[in-house]
Amino acid sequence: MSDTMLVDQVTRALAEHCDAATMREVEARRFPRQAWDALAPMGLRLALVPEDQGGAGLGLETAAELFMALGHHGAPVPLAEDMVAAMLFAASGLEVPEDGVLTFAAAGGTVPWGAFATRVATVHGRRLHILAGGIANGRASISGEPRDVIEHATTLAEVTLPESFGDGSARSLTALIRAAQIAGALGAILALAVDYANTRVQFGRPIGRFQAIQQQLAEFAEESACASVAARSAARAADKRGLAGAAFEIGCAKIIAGEAAGKCAAIAHQVFAAIGITEDHSLHHFTRRLWSWREEGGTERFWAQRIGAEAQARGGAALWPDITARDEGIAP
């Protein structure tokens, strides 16, 4: 199956099995069993596992498209976490479990979907620990998605990740997932907002006719397009140079996505006005996820601090040559 066919197929399946009710279920701290059972058999777990280990051998660029598709539906199932955890298993030479739910996290951090996972991969530098059990409900994020804490888990295995993963692979992978999910969610919110603007009538015409509304939604579209290009480009860089080698691009993508999340959530709520902040309306499921996801995998502040410090250390004369060299496959 070609990569685009897979993305299309997953996109259709998500549209069929996930809706606002699925997001509500997650926020009520119930596992979205029905959606998971419908989607898991598509075999995405093996998507990022190399072919010689029995997987589909897809790259992160295709995965980013899948993460965007998930984000478009509010990512109400842990498919991204599961897929990436399986990649970590395989990369460190472990057999990928066939059943259950997998997830991953940086050591010491909260674990997305931890309480529902059968196996958790925690990353300590380049060491990978596989844990089972003992994951307690943690603090829910702004969006009410499960972000759990490890209490008395059993360690089933301790292995080492390849060098190309670097020391911050859990953070980078989370950043990549969330950046792409933000881009996907922005696409969904924009479609909702355009539809609303074309139907909500005030002063005798659809509010979408008012230039003030048009200009705001145009700005939304700009930010959303930028986030999408950034997330996909970062994933492509990771395919080319490994996670450690693509930390710059992943950081940039997370900064752009985080900034877009803030700006666009504000615009969306302005366009929907009062109805948009009601529990009944689906908008908040998306905007609250934007506010949550930008906090994970390193905030804008975290990455900007890093990228800025690196630019300072290299000096202004190297800034442009470094940017072009990266895209042209030359190590800066």
Binding site: C226, A230, I256, A304, R306, G308
Partner: peptide
Amino acid sequence: AEPLGREVARLWALRR
């Protein structure tokens, strides 16, 4: 560092 990092990130994304 942080505000410069934001400028660099945007430059990279716009170039893409």
